[in-house]
Design a binder for these strands. Structure first.
Ligand code: NAD
Ligand code: NAD
Lengths: 234, 234
DNA sequence: CGCCGCTTGTTCACGTGGTCACAAGCGCCC
DNA sequence: GGGCGCTTGTGACCACGTGAACAAGCGGCG
């Protein structure tokens, strides 16, 4: 790790990191339209942010733009992919093949974009052994063996909340250091493991909060157009 | 400030609003254990934040704690539910009954907690008319009629990205003012509509970024335990 | 009835993130 | 080759969110 020579040590703000994938997707769209370069203003339109933020975010990656012209779409795409670590495949394991796990396993959008599903695991003997999208579900006890067979980078938790912490612990023990949790519960992980969560119920309740504030309680169908109190439309 | 009769005018920070549902879930857990009161410290443990933040967040709701004792679990639960607008049911429509839409429609966790699925809509004639979890899928063209029959509060978009904007527009035209978007694309809505998005690909790419920074590129199985660079474990 | 320990509610200092504005720099055209 | 318009990159400023620290206040105990 003692590289030193590269001034790679730029620390990119967390908020910026979260926007990079959106920029990348917008660039893909622009490339599809055949545009050779793109301005920060146009990129802002496509990605839903404002131009100043776009420029500042991109400046963290380096000075890849040309004043008076804009950014070279293909080159910026490459640099951003590299920064996001998308030049290699990241192997994903999905734990819990119920409603949600099935949908995720059948979804083609992962493998397409550098996140191939490498394994599926469940604890239910009725599920273990079945095939989903060409992959055989194995027992979660085999997780260490699975990780030994092929590198597993990312674990997705789609089990009931009660099992989430245990599943996370097992993943970490098997060497997984990035986890995406769909179960509605708090999962604790050591500092060197990344954890992100997607929580449906939380999202709905946040929507509920702002809708109530707006007075959208349903009984009146006439909306007073004066009541502007809806922040989460960013 | 023209005082205003209600002191309801407290503006709760957006970041706090996003944590309220987590607190509420933690309170539910505490109530299940039969605890009459809970301290900010204990609530912080359960919800995964720190005690100072918990106290500050709760103070936005009002002074519902007792110094030297803590917060009355049941009362705080009630106040928080009221603030989040959970004292009434919010009717949900799901658009797009593919992989993901099916999983969502079959999921029991919504109705349980005040978000009953009131309708399902799709554009594919092969899907329209089928029953999912006891609800018949209708054509998206009927959205206005559906909204006229029964109030629809929240729309969930689970269609391909290419259809997301159009579906959102139709929902808004039908009077829906809160939308949750699962499609990986930018959707624009007027200011008086709340929009939140859940984007799987973005989450995976964020994980990829931090894992690469940590040097977890897979070829070397020996992880230098010194490289701590994994913020998203909040 | 007064003291004491415990926990809240709030204040303050700090860091992060967002917005604005503008000089620097590039390409193009005359 | 010089000027000119356009767009980047960045520095300054402001708003928001976070974390620590502490006085205020409650209940209980002697
Ligand atoms: N289905 C949805 O649309 C949806 C929406 C939001 C959140 N969620 C959350 O996602 C999670 C999964 O939801 P679901 O509807 O698919 O649930 P589900 O009950 O249909 O499936 C859960 C699966 O996990 C397996 N499992 C249980 N314990 C396990 C363990 N210890 N190790 C490995 N596998 C185990 C079960 O065998 C089952 O196959 C839940 O936490 C749920 O709250 C689901
Ligand atoms: N399946 C997953 O696990 C998953 C994960 C992440 C993101 N997503 C995203 O969620 C969305 C849905 O994914 P999916 O796998 O369910 O796709 P899918 O193709 O299986 O289903 C899409 C459904 O939407 C319907 N539809 C198409 N156009 C429509 C329109 N104009 N109005 C109403 N309905 C319409 C289709 O008939 C189909 O039933 C996609 O945008 C996808 O990228 C899915």
């Amino acid at each position: 790790m003692a590289e030193g020579s590269k001034r790679q040590a730029r620390k990119i703000p967390e908020a910026t990191v979260a926007r990079l994938p959106i920029y990348l997707r917008s660039l893909l769209e622009a490339a599809g339209d055949g545009l050779p370069t793109i301005s920060s203003e146009r990129l802002a339109e496509l990605s839903g942010f404002n131009a100043a933020k776009v420029r500042k975010d991109l400046s963290y990656l380096g000075s890849y733009g040309t004043r008076g012209v804009g950014y070279d779409v293909e080159y910026l795409q490459y640099q951003m992919s590299r920064e996001l670590g998308l030049t290699k495949d990241w192997h994903v394991v999905i734990a819990g093949l119920g409603n949600l796990g099935h949908a995720l396993a059948n979804y083609g959008g992962f493998g397409d974009r550098g996140f191939p599903v490498a394994a599926l695991v469940d604890a239910d003997p009725r599920v273990v052994g079945t095939d989903i999208n060409g992959i055989t579900v194995r027992h979660i006890d085999e997780l260490d063996a699975i990780a030994a067979e092929s590198q597993i980078d990312i674990g997705i938790i789609a089990t009931p909340a009660s099992a989430a912490q245990e599943v996370a612990d097992r993943m970490i023990a098997a060497g997984v250091s990035s986890i995406l949790n769909f179960a509605p519960t708090i999962v604790s992980v050591p500092a060197e493991v990344s954890l992100r969560k997607v929580d449906l119920a939380v999202e709905l309740q946040i929507l509920s909060f702002y809708q109530q504030r707006r007075g959208g309680a349903g009984s009146t169908s006439s909306l007073p157009p004066e009541t502007a109190a809806a922040p989460p439309a960013g």
